[in-house]
Design a protein around this nucleic acid. Structure first.
Length: 289
RNA sequence: GGCCCGGUAGCUCAGCAGGUAGAGCAAAGGACUGAAAAUCCUUGUGUCGCCGGUUCGACCCCGGCUUGGGCCA
């Protein structure tokens, strides 16, 4: 059985994963977009280095903060990893707060292969949001209706894919069946009462500060610069933008906002998640299956 | 004790010849297929400090009270 643990930040996913790992003596695969970076520790609430030393943890500390990874890369490495582990393990735990990483790994999301994938010509960079959107309407109406013209990032992506010569982005998506590829996956969600969750988030940020988040973040910002992909993580980017007085509150606030976005994604993108309001309930459900 | 300025959304404030209010931030809800801890969309929030008066009608004018700040005794 594959147990896929979903939920917002600070809901207790890692704790549940660890308990299940102990119970089943099974591997744990990370599905979190920022725990893949070696240098980011305190702010990403990664399992402790002692825990990681126990072994049987996968896709943690994959790459350096100086590099970055796309969803395409992650999907590939995730599938290779889990397919290998499935040969020798009856149970596997997958944990992560990055809903899209989970979805693209478990569902038949398809991406244009690297060889065909071309970056948008520079001329597009200079266009206004509206101009870009008009362009997209012409070449991929299907994608355009799903996007808002202010969402420049996505409009550009859709253009990029359609211009890669492999067909329109919307056609690409229509071909997919939108079903889970792994038949024995059980999706477990942790849905903590909002008020308690926010309190846990605030408390955890306090704890991160006492563990030395400020030093970790500032050192990394100095080493890699504030534009680094890895340092766009909540708990890091704020040190480059806010003064001492505001930083902590901003990190708390952005974490709360993020938790809400995560819940929206999990609730509305995964029909198969079984929701539990506590770690213990989820744990006993898993071990009694 | 006297004089002056203020009390309007969770916060900072705007507003009006008298026709029961609006910005920013916060917050809530939503979208999501190569940056996803990212990116984007939508939406209110109200005894206009309290009591009375004038008025067809008061957040606005008048009186009193209350409360915060400043100045003078």
């Amino acid at each position: 059985m594959i147990y896929v643990i979903c939920g917002p930040t600070a809901s207790g996913k890692s704790t549940l994963a660890y308990k299940l790992k102990k119970y089943f003596d099974c591997p744990v695969i990370n599905c979190d977009s920022f725990q893949i970076y070696k240098e980011l520790n305190i702010g990403t609430a990664k399992p402790t280095s002692d825990e990681l030393k126990e072994g049987n943890y996968y896709l943690y500390n994959l790459i350096s903060a100086s590099s970055s990874m796309s969803i395409f890369d992650f999907q590939k490495i995730f599938r290779t990893t889990i397919d290998n582990l499935l040969k020798t393990n009856k149970n596997i735990v997958v944990v992560g707060g990055s809903g899209l990483y989970i979805k693209s790994s478990f569902y038949d999301y398809q991406f244009v292969e690297d060889e065909q994938f071309v970056k948008l010509p520079e001329a597009f960079e200079k266009m206004s949001n509206h101009e870009l959107y008009m362009h997209l309407q012409k070449i991929d109406e299907g994608s355009a209706v799903k996007l808002h013209e202010n969402n420049r990032k996505r409009v550009m992506r859709a253009l990029e894919i359609s211009l890669s010569g492999t067909g329109k982005k919307s056609e690409f998506e229509e071909k997919q069946k939108h079903v889970c590829l792994y038949k024995d996956a059980t999706f477990i969600g942790l849905d903590i009462n909002r008020e308690n969750l926010y309190k846990k988030i605030n408390d955890r940020v306090e704890e991160m500060f006492s563990l030395g988040l400020e030093k970790e973040a500032k050192d990394l910002l100095k080493e890699f610069g504030p534009d680094t992909q890895a340092l766009q993580a909540i708990g890091y980017k704020e040190f480059a933008k806010y003064n001492e007085e505001e930083v902590k509150d901003k990190i708390k606030q952005f974490s709360r906002n993020y938790a809400k976005r995560q819940m929206t994604f999990f609730k509305n993108q995964f029909e198969e998640i079984k929701w539990f309001s506590s770690i213990d309930e989820a744990y006993s459900f898993c071990i009694n299956q």
